[in-house]
């Protein structure tokens, strides 16, 4: 092949590449990149949802955030929720993965059962669990009657509402991290276990010395994915408690949603959503940095 035809072939390839990328690129720019920058612009305005009232106010929306007590309450609630769900979800996913890992039909069925609850939509999950936890006709009502207690109104209780939402989330979300752990477990070389068997290592020693160190990257991955995912909690709180009782379960995304679509303060809500974005980014970076440090 001559040099000229090589160059021509390269050009053709480059042209083909841009054409292959074009559909994705155009949609990506229109529906992600552009709104991101437009959001920054909106957050510098006093901007109403309907109508055309728009006034440039600089960083006033961001300054207002510092003194908005409900905003900080929502940040606190979101962090509480993350603290409640992320460690328990990761631990439960790991325990379940260890329990259902391996051959056999029964284990396959068990895997499906624990994974299945994650394919339900948020409104189905909240419907099911609002019913389960209901003090009027909930699943636990007969049990409370049996022990001679008045049924507890979990979702209306100031301290029990958030743990109830966390429990619901656990049931909904454990499938994905469990599957990640299962994938990691299947990557551990069998020789490691054979050597341990020769040494008559106990089950606990094998777990601590072989299994856990081999999947520590997956543990980190699950933690990062969970933190980022749980930070975005919205549907459960919005549908199960509407943020109550007394703002105890009002989360950040819910407050953003309400500020924008109930109170129409689009500019202020957008400023908040960038706050959330930065917070999430910060946590992800921290987690990755800690993980890298742990490896050295």
């Amino acid at each position: 092949m001559s040099a000229n035809s090589l160059i021509a072939a390269r050009r053709r390839d480059a042209l083909a590449a841009y054409l292959f990328l074009a559909p994705f690129g155009l949609i990506y720019i229109t529906f992600l990149v552009y709104p991101l920058f437009k959001g920054l612009w909106i957050s510098l305005h006093d901007w109403e949802l309907a109508g055309s009232y728009r006034e440039y106010i600089g960083f006033l929306n961001y300054e207002d955030l510092w003194t908005d007590t409900i905003f900080w309450k929502a940040v606190g609630n979101t962090l509480t929720f993350v603290a409640m769900t992320v460690p328990t979800m990761t631990a439960l996913a790991l325990v379940l993965a260890l329990a259902v890992f391996g051959q056999g039909r029964l284990k396959g069925v068990l895997r499906s059962i624990f994974f299945m609850s994650s394919v339900f939509s948020v409104s189905v999950v909240t419907l099911v669990w609002s019913m389960v936890l209901s003090a009027d006709n909930g699943l636990l009502v007969p049990f409370f009657h049996f022990i001679g207690m008045k049924p507890v109104n979990f979702l209306g209780h100031p301290t029990l509402a958030m743990p109830s939402i966390a429990l619901t989330t656990l049931w909904w979300g454990v499938g994905l991290p469990m599957a990640l752990f299962l994938a990691a477990l299947s990557q551990i070389p069998g020789e490691l276990y054979e050597a341990a068997e020769l040494d008559h290592a106990s089950r606990f020693t094998v777990l601590r010395r072989i299994t856990l160190p081999s999947i520590r990257h997956t543990v980190l991955l699950v933690l990062v994915l969970q933190i980022v995912g749980q930070f975005q909690i919205f549907g459960q709180a919005h549908l199960m408690t509407q943020g109550g009782p007394a703002n105890r379960t009002r989360t950040l995304v819910q407050y953003i949603y309400e500020t924008s679509f109930r109170d129409w303060q689009v500019g202020y809500a957008t400023a908040m959503s960038f706050g959330l974005f930065l917070l999430m980014l910060g946590f992800t970076m921290l987690q990755l940095w800690l993980g890298r440090k742990g490896d050295e």
Partner: peptide, 8 residues
Amino acid sequence: PEQAVFIP
């Protein structure tokens, strides 16, 4: 995250 762009 989608929450950063859903309002704009």
